[in-house]
Design a protein around this nucleic acid. Sequence first.
DNA 1: TCCCGCCTTCCGTCCAGCGGAAGTGTAGGC
DNA 2: GCCTACACTTCCGCTGGACGGAAGGCGGGA
Lengths: 255, 255
Amino acid sequence: MVRQRELPRSGTQRVLAILAAFTAERPVLALSEISRLAGLALTTTHRQLAELTRWGALERGDDGRYRIGLRLWEVGALAPRSLGLREAALPFLEDLYEATHQNVQVAVLDGREVVYVERITGRDAVHVVTRPGSRLPLHATAVGLVLLAHAPISEIDAVLAAPLKRYTEYTVTDPARLRRALADTRRNGYAISVRQIETVSTSVAAPIRDERDVVVAALSIVVPAKGAHARRHVPAVLAAARGVSRGIGSTPGNP
Amino acid sequence: MVRQRELPRSGTQRVLAILAAFTAERPVLALSEISRLAGLALTTTHRQLAELTRWGALERGDDGRYRIGLRLWEVGALAPRSLGLREAALPFLEDLYEATHQNVQVAVLDGREVVYVERITGRDAVHVVTRPGSRLPLHATAVGLVLLAHAPISEIDAVLAAPLKRYTEYTVTDPARLRRALADTRRNGYAISVRQIETVSTSVAAPIRDERDVVVAALSIVVPAKGAHARRHVPAVLAAARGVSRGIGSTPGNP
DNA sequence: TCCCGCCTTCCGTCCAGCGGAAGTGTAGGC
DNA sequence: GCCTACACTTCCGCTGGACGGAAGGCGGGA
């Protein structure tokens, strides 16, 4: 199924349809696969791939298949919500990681989802499904609760009015309970998410704010649900998030 | 100066010219700036920007200026030479960082340059000019020496035949000395680069190999040139690089 | 208030790009 | 070794998607 609702019409749409054909599940594609996924004729695909490869957006392997090229990654890395945020966040993520040796990550809001832009994970840390570039829904993640709690009311209403997916028996999908969780998040200044995506993990998240006090991202730690008490990580998560917030005003890309 | 030698002709070239207008130095651009940098008419630029923004490749801020969007970063993050390598390398980079609290990084070969795809830096670490996405020449970096040492002879000849830039009074630009350095790198299995880019730093790099024993990246540590002996980091850098090499065969994107 | 620079919209014109068909190459099965 | 199927590459007649200059709107600074 093509990810785009309609077949590409303009040249620009064709280029983007090709890039969109690549996913975390399928990072390597043959020409005919790209043609099918992008909804383009073979000839068209062939021509476009040649140009994208020449520029470096794509790379063609010895096996004849295509992969996203370094040049595209370089351009993508210029995204302030990835590069700028990451540069500001990394020292604090390092500190939090060293203190706990658990997963630490940063996510931003994009539409009705969270997108993880950074993750540090240790070998012995609890398994997490997220990786940089991953998307998860707002209601079932601690970072999502933080980001939603500070979104406009209309946005909150829209998210809670839509069908909410249940991942585990613990996943909260009742809008009333979620509104209380959002109110708690605002009052406490952090969110805790217990066994919502996977039953083995719990996470604590806190908001990262820009110089205008707008919540632009959330930082979280993910720990095993059993044993360690997530609540005891709250002070460190808050401190790390505040540290990132202080650094954010000086990163390129902000007015 | 437009980065492309010729003005864009095809639709695809126009899209890529727009993306190429953004750089680490200028991650935020106004419409007319993009038009000039990409060599496109205002109308054309306006139309293209609308499509790129609609898709998420670009984001337009409240100030009316454009930034690289999260969606493009997501696609770019699928590059095996960035994502796959990074996922495999991060645990070892973390270990090396924790043991030393110095800068640790991974770079790949791209044309006649190295591109840094990952970097962990601490607050107290010596200043380094590199960031993810940065490019530096091969001859003046430890990672560059490692990558060049294992490149085809024709490639070595081509690089050493071209003018080599001097960054500090210590930068080696004599082809004969560089050939000896490359031979040493092959024999030792690592490279040491002293005050080549900045006079305050020294670095040690080791090769990261894929399952066919091909050198695909290099891992390095950057330490202050004064005091700490770079040589004593060699065992740890070699161990980290070997660890990454072992992990690489299992990452997505490799045959 | 005026001017300048930037951005947005309009619209007549045209060639860049489309895609079907045919050709080529390769791998796997018999 | 041969055959078949599939993927990829090249060709070329045709056309509508896209071009960009001009005009208008908007906002900020003098």
